[in-house]
């Protein structure tokens, strides 16, 4: 009932919102709300297209070029096989959102993989206590920062900072252990 009422009041914009919200797992948590302006922009573009203010060019099934005309009489430049309608504009929107999401996801996985590799190499040289605790926490922190959408430079910095601290802490940890071993050896030899 509420959906029908909302659709009647808000029209196609509500349907787009509902559609994207339904597929929010593709777009990421909270994404539909963030992308609302963009969808709104596409809907406005649809209005301009129908009013012949925008010229578009489609190449290989994707939007290739867009130009805006101030002349109301200018006809939209639409390539063969493409019809300007609600479904097509919706498709661009969803495709664009999905492509962005896939790119973000790939980048996220690449950064996590790189962190795992860097930590993996470092792990071979450091004591397991430090590796499990500090590098494990750092990897968890990297994933949480990526999920929160923190800038990638900050995450890369975090990875290298974790390695530097782990190496430094390993040195002090081993020296402390050595000191303890030496003092207990001295005690037993007396």
């Amino acid at each position: 009932m509420l959906h029908r009422l909302m659709a009647a009041v808000l029209g196609e914009r509500y349907l787009v919102y509902k559609f994207v919200n339904k597929h929010r797992t593709m777009a990421g948590k909270g994404e539909p709300r963030l992308k609302w302006r963009e969808i709104d922009g596409y809907m406005a573009m649809l209005g301009d297209l129908t009013e012949s203010k925008i010229k578009i060019r489609i190449k290989d099934g994707a939007l290739d070029a867009v130009s805006v005309s101030s002349e109301d009489s200018a006809a939209p430049y639409v390539l063969k096989g493409f019809t300007v309608n609600y479904d097509n504009v919706l498709q661009w929107t969803i495709k664009k959102l999905m492509a962005e999401h896939v790119m973000e996801e790939e980048l996220r996985l690449r950064i996590v993989k790189r962190a795992e590799n860097v930590f993996g190499i470092t792990s071979a040289l450091l004591p397991p206590r430090i590796v499990n605790e500090e590098l494990g926490d750092a990897l968890e922190d990297v994933q949480s920062r990526l999920a929160r959408g923190r800038p990638h430079y900050e995450i890369r910095l975090k990875i290298w900072a974790a390695v530097v601290w782990a190496v430094f802490h390993s040195g002090t940890y081993l020296l402390k252990r050595l000191g303890k071993a030496v003092s207990s050896f001295r005690r037993t030899s007396k």
């Binding site: 206590r129 499990n132 605790e133 590098l135 494990g136 926490d137 990897l139 968890e140």
Partner: peptide, 9 residues
């Protein structure tokens, strides 16, 4: 798995 097989301390 989140920690690439490392346990939390």
């Amino acid at each position: 798995d989140v920690r690439a097989g490392r346990p939390r301390r």
